[in-house]
Simulated scan of single mutants.
Amino acid sequence: MMPSRDKIFSRIRHNLGRGPLAEEAVNALKARIEGHVPHTIPKRTDIAHKEQVDLFQAKAEALAATVARISSLDDVPEALRDYLTAHNLATRIKMSPDPALDNLPFNMTPMLEINRGAAAPEDEVSLTPAFAGIAETGTLCMASSAETPSTLNFLPENHVVVIKASQISGSLEDSWARLRQKYGAGNLPRTVNFISGPSRTADIEQTLIMGAHGPRRLHILIVDDGPQD
């Protein structure tokens, strides 16, 4: 039995009046797909890594995200507490079950209630790791998995993201290269979300509304994990 995917493509070719592709064309397409030739990369990202991290922060803040720089993962609980206090937010946190966050010293901040798993409608604050950061646009790359549920990126109104400086690079193309390197070409996560600032829309009468399709606030904690140049 022909797989559904092949049936769909077969019908498209039929409706376009095209038969099967010649072997030469098939090989050319396969080489292009497997070659992963990068698209245009902005010149502004061709800078030292430290400057890329600074550019990422500047771009993220220009998109209404807030950013704090911390020296190690051990500083995450206190930085999170300070952020919640500054905005008078709930101290109940839904945290990603990613092992990267397993050893955060929340014993130093006993007022924070940490629960782990996918987000539920009642969750107000989420804490997640990022897969990568894109300096050219101040964008976070988030890869879905059982340890990093996508619901944490969208359901809570306040999203706090932890990213190491070493995970930040210049361009969008870099993030795709990292994904292929980790998961293997053709075996990417079920979803890859690119997040640039908190959710917003101005579709109705050009009035800017925050949190229309996701968090009202996005706070990024950049962990300085050493020089990369």
Rank of each mutant, 00 (worst) to 15 (best):
M1I: 11
S4V: 14
F9E: 03
I12Q: 08
I12F: 13
N15G: 09
L16C: 10
G17Y: 12
G19N: 12
P20Q: 12
A22N: 13
A22Y: 05
E23F: 02
E24N: 15
E24L: 09
E24K: 15
V26P: 01
N27W: 00
K30R: 14
K30L: 09
A31E: 15
R32G: 02
R32D: 14
I33P: 00
I33F: 09
E34D: 09
E34L: 15
H36W: 10
H39S: 13
H39R: 11
H39A: 11
I41S: 04
D46N: 12
I47A: 07
A48W: 04
K50C: 07
E51P: 07
V53F: 03
F56V: 07
Q57L: 09
A58H: 12
K59T: 03
A60M: 05
A60Q: 02
E61Y: 02
A65F: 00
A68R: 13
R69E: 10
L73T: 05
A79K: 08
L80F: 01
Y83T: 02
H87V: 01
H87A: 10
N88I: 02
L89M: 11
T91A: 08
K94V: 02
M95N: 05
P97M: 05
D98M: 11
P99T: 09
L101T: 04
N103D: 14
P105W: 11
T109R: 07
M111S: 14
L112V: 04
L112M: 02
E113D: 07
N115T: 07
G117K: 06
G117V: 04
A118M: 02
A120F: 02
P121V: 03
E122C: 00
D123Y: 00
E124K: 08
E124W: 00
T128R: 01
T128W: 01
F131W: 14
F131L: 06
G133R: 11
E136S: 13
E136T: 06
T137L: 13
T137K: 10
G138A: 02
T139Q: 03
T139M: 08
L140S: 06
C141T: 13
A143P: 00
S144M: 02
E147R: 01
S150D: 12
S150E: 14
L152K: 04
N153A: 12
E157S: 13
N158F: 05
I163G: 09
I163R: 11
K164A: 11
S166Y: 06
S169C: 05
G170D: 08
L172F: 15
D174R: 09
D174C: 05
W176R: 03
A177C: 02
A177H: 09
R180V: 09
R180Y: 15
K182T: 13
K182V: 12
G184E: 13
A185V: 06
G186F: 03
P189H: 00
V192W: 00
V192A: 04
N193S: 11
I195P: 03
S196Y: 04
G197P: 04
P198L: 06
T201D: 09
D203N: 13
D203M: 09
I204S: 09
I204Y: 11
I204A: 10
E205R: 10
E205W: 08
T207M: 03
T207K: 15
T207L: 06
L208P: 10
A212T: 13
P215D: 01
I220H: 07
I220Q: 05
I220P: 04
L221P: 03
I222M: 12
V223T: 06
V223Y: 04
D229N: 14
D229M: 03
